[in-house]
Nucleic acid binder design. Sequence first.
DNA 1: GGCGATCCATACTCAAGCGTATGGTAACCG
DNA 2: CGGTTACCATACGCTTGAGTATGGATCGCC
Lengths: 192, 192
Amino acid sequence: MNASSKPERTRLSAENWEDAALDVIAEQGVGALAVEALARRLGVTKGSFYWHFRTREALLQAALERWEQYGEREVIAQIEAIPDPRERLPELFRRVAHELQPHRVYAALLKALDHPLVVPVMARVSQRRTEFLATAFREAGLPPAEALNRARLTYAAYVGFLQLNFTLGLPRISHEDFDAYVEHMIATLIPA
Amino acid sequence: MNASSKPERTRLSAENWEDAALDVIAEQGVGALAVEALARRLGVTKGSFYWHFRTREALLQAALERWEQYGEREVIAQIEAIPDPRERLPELFRRVAHELQPHRVYAALLKALDHPLVVPVMARVSQRRTEFLATAFREAGLPPAEALNRARLTYAAYVGFLQLNFTLGLPRISHEDFDAYVEHMIATLIPA
DNA sequence: GGCGATCCATACTCAAGCGTATGGTAACCG
DNA sequence: CGGTTACCATACGCTTGAGTATGGATCGCC
């Protein structure tokens, strides 16, 4: 079950390439996904790559599919496990706010929305998450139409925050200020 | 005062190139900004370009500066002209929501945050707009700390909305649904 | 109306990055 | 333990797009 770290002298599989691709995407964006650079990163050459994948696009496609599948599983499951529906949203907000790592790929993909391959993936993921939020808002007491709009608003705020404070390094908000911001979000977006 | 249309047989200036660059950015993104393509679009060749600009990056830089300067002027002025402070924010929301054109460059630049040149520009612009929002929220009656957080939240929602519904073409929300969404935003984000 | 400055065309060079061809080595299997 | 299969190295071709060199056309101005 370990084959995704750095310098393992073993031979590579397609999944290794996909994981490495996602790492590069998270660190330097989709544009920096080049096969020769990736090969160097993995300690091999292009010859290896073109055995596993027919083209560069094929790798990107596979990596995106991989990310889409193994992406949100945990968070959604954890939140749905919370018994009181009215506690789910605040908990979701706080949890998401303090896990930076999983958002890096998402943020990187937001900056790559010109690429035709990432658009449908992001569309599906965002759609699912928004719907998840909508049901959560309904369970929290909002009428359906309002719940959907609130979900859109909330998810847009999440996406925008990623762009402004994550990739763009806006005035590097302090830790306690950030916590205050999260609580402010909870107070304004979640019905009492 | 007219020199930015398509097929004017006159000779070109640096400003013409910058405007054309912004058009391309708005339509196809920063990545599609290539000098030979731009030259074709303007009916000339690279020879012309490299007389006006030292490099491709120089053009991008100049175009971004141009956009940053002549960008928001009008909106802010118009809003500040509204006498009743409590009417400014709803009016701002509705106005911004129905002017799609000016947001195209901004949306395109959001997708180009990997490029080192656009980051500082976007940082400055977003910073200024957020501060503008913050004072508006203060004038609307929110205490300073809360006003700042509400401004952050609001602007993040704006940015996220651009990404999700503009560049990404999410479930193509209908016109009346969109209006309902805007009103929901107003009701949720603006203090009564 | 000629002359320097401005603007543009043509024809190159050069580097990056994808993809291909082909031969080599290590694993696995009978 | 020989041979097939899976994986990788090396060396090449090809395209795209940036940047350069240089000469031609056109404008402004005296």
